[in-house]
């Protein structure tokens, strides 16, 4: 009996060892790629580390000075405001349009596949290509948009340099590029909605709107939450379009947190200051997305 117990124990411990061995590659990758940079970002956030200057003058521990500077900085506060505003509008528009497009494509009797492919194209394009194409189209000199507006005797704008239009143009471009992502996720979710529920609703005499709110949306609510979460996180990280098209201007009206950190932390090689900003941004994203995460976990 003792011998049998000993065999079971040996077998259990070797199973544990095997499990740990199997987990170790993932654990090491996570440690190197996530834990290590995260630790150093948190650490540098409390220092005045500058990539170029620190090797000569040293790195000093400055406590919460970077955080205090950030919070008291008017440009950072404006960038946070712009980012939150952008994320809210972008998520709302992308979710609404993506959902409507998904419903439309699902309702098609023919050409569903080619339509699906065509609709995905903006999402497949690299952001740099998207930004430069839009810049050409909206150029105040040779842009097709202003030419069309002029021929229709409508007012034209200097889209990316006008304080009234720059932010909204970035939003339009972002929505245009990311609606296909929402569409794809929701379209896939719509395929999983049981058809018999629709049939039963129709037999009961429910109209289109009733079916959408009582059957479609409840069935895909987890996908909607996931989609909104992913788009919120992504919208918060908006950088390339802003950097390429407006550089955060005019008058800081399009500056996002990432653009601010690029200008005042990365470009100037003040990685201590930049790290503190990155930590604040992560906290902000976590707070805002916690709603979705709670929803998804429940």
């Amino acid at each position: 009996m003792k011998k049998a117990n000993g065999t079971i124990r040996t077998s259990n411990s070797s199973m544990k060892r095997f499990g740990l061995t199997m987990l170790s590659p993932t654990f090491i990758v996570l440690l190197v790629m996530t834990a290590y940079p995260l630790f150093f970002t948190i650490f540098y956030g409390f220092t005045d580390y500058n990539l170029l200057k620190s090797p000569k003058r040293g790195t000093n521990f400055i406590g919460l000075e970077n955080y205090a500077d950030l919070i008291s900085n008017q440009y950072f506060r404006q960038a946070v405001g712009n980012t939150v505003k952008f994320a809210i509008f972008a998520v709302i528009f992308e979710m609404v349009f993506g959902f409507l497009v998904a419903l439309y494509v699902k309702s098609l009797k023919r050409f569903q596949k080619p339509m699906r492919t065509l609709l995905l194209l903006p999402y497949l394009l690299p952001t740099v290509t998207v930004a430069l194409s839009w810049r050409m189209m909206l150029s105040p000199n040779y842009g097709i948009v202003n030419q069309v507006l002029t021929s229709l005797h409508l007012p034209v704008y200097n889209w990316f340099s006008d304080i009234k239009t720059a932010f909204w143009m970035l939003l339009v471009i972002d929505v245009w590029q990311n609606v296909p992502f929402v569409f794809l996720l929701l379209y896939a979710a719509l395929q999983a909605v049981p058809m018999d529920q629709y049939e039963a609703a129709r037999i009961d005499g429910a109209g289109g709107v009733r079916i959408m709110f009582d059957i479609t949306i409840p069935n895909i609510k987890n996908s909607l939450a996931l989609c909104a979460l992913l788009r919120t996180i992504d919208s918060f990280r908006l950088f390339d379009k802003v950097n390429l098209l407006t550089g955060g201007g005019p008058a800081n009206t399009t500056a996002t947190i990432t653009q601010y950190l690029y200008n005042f932390g990365i470009k100037t090689l003040d990685f201590g200051f930049g790290s503190a900003g990155a930590i604040l941004m992560t906290l902000l994203v976590l707070i805002l997305s916690s709603f979705y995460i709670r929803k998804a976990l429940s």
Binding site: Y75, N252, F264, K267
Partner: peptide, 22 residues
Amino acid sequence: IAEWTEFYTILGAELDNIVNGV
């Protein structure tokens, strides 16, 4: 000056505010 990158970033941001009437 060694601080030129930071210098023009700050000055440029304020000039941007001025030219846009902010």
